[in-house]
């Protein structure tokens, strides 16, 4: 079952403060993603892998083309969706684990991880219990669960981010360098989480610079090549 499909997706950045220079990043991207598979984005640094990921999440707005996503049983074009629809898509269908955690002041780790489950209507106690279990699995000791992650190390913050991303059970998950700051033991946990999510029917798009990790989780590669302006 196709859960995500892009058609002629294009994205450029126009820098009005730099004399209006336009930088094309994506052109004619045609990507298809099916339930239960993991597609790894490949290509040289700067080719636009993260930009594609952010376009899919609605964090960057596409210039043209369509991003069709299966949401509540129907394919909708999220490139044209308004902000309210996009919020519902993010709550119920599309998860995103960015490389860096955006820390909210004073909110304890456990609540950060439980929040997407709470937003989907999971009862507070159950959401917190599931959050604690996931954090513990990612080798975050319970003593840290009550603390805001502002003072955590990069690897710890990434695990908080991962726990938050996997907690809600979204049917489509975007993972940007999920093992970048992790040691081998924690990378193994992430590989297992990805395998379990796939087995449960979750479709994943990932960027993995670690080729060993990539070979173990990805079913296929999707090449992204830099866009050059015609001379």
């Amino acid at each position: 079952m196709i859960v995500l499909h892009t058609e002629a997706l294009a994205k450029s950045f126009t820098l009005h403060l730099q004399g209006g220079v336009s930088i094309p990043v994506l052109r004619d991207v045609e990507l298809t993603l099916r339930a239960g598979e993991c597609v790894a984005l490949a290509g040289p640094s700067g080719a636009g892998k993260s930009t594609l990921m952010r376009c899919l999440y609605g964090n960057y707005g596409a210039d043209s083309g369509r991003i069709l996503l299966r949401h509540e049983g129907a394919m909708i074009d999220i490139a044209a969706a308004d902000a309210r629809v996009m919020r519902a898509v993010r709550r119920d269908t599309l998860g995103y684990v960015s490389q860096f955690l955006r820390v909210i002041p004073r909110v304890p780790t456990l609540d950060i991880v439980a929040e997407p489950m709470r937003a989907r209507g999971v009862a507070p106690d159950e959401a917190r219990a599931r959050a604690a279990a996931l954090l513990t699995r990612l080798n975050m000791p319970p003593a840290l669960h009550g603390l805001p992650p502002a003072t955590f190390s990069g690897g710890e913050q990434q695990r908080v981010n991962l726990a938050r991303g996997f907690a809600a059970g979204h049917p489509v998950l975007l993972l940007d360098e999920p093992t970048a700051s992790l040691d081998a033991a924690n990378a193994e946990v992430v590989i297992a989480l990805i395998a379990e999510a796939k087995a449960a029917g979750c479709a994943i798009i990932g960027i993995f610079h670690d080729t060993a990790v990539r070979q173990r989780v990805a079913d296929r590669l999707f090449q992204i090549l830099p866009v050059y302006e015609p001379a």
Binding site: F13, L15, H16, L17, R54, G58, N59, Y60, G61, A83
Partner: peptide
């Protein structure tokens, strides 16, 4: 300009929004 908060702030389109964010 209007839209999702993170879209407007991370990918500002209008010259004025770009100035504001930068």
């Amino acid at each position: 300009e209007e839209g999702l908060t993170d879209r407007v702030l991370d990918d500002p389109r209008h010259p004025y929004t770009q100035l504001l964010v930068s």
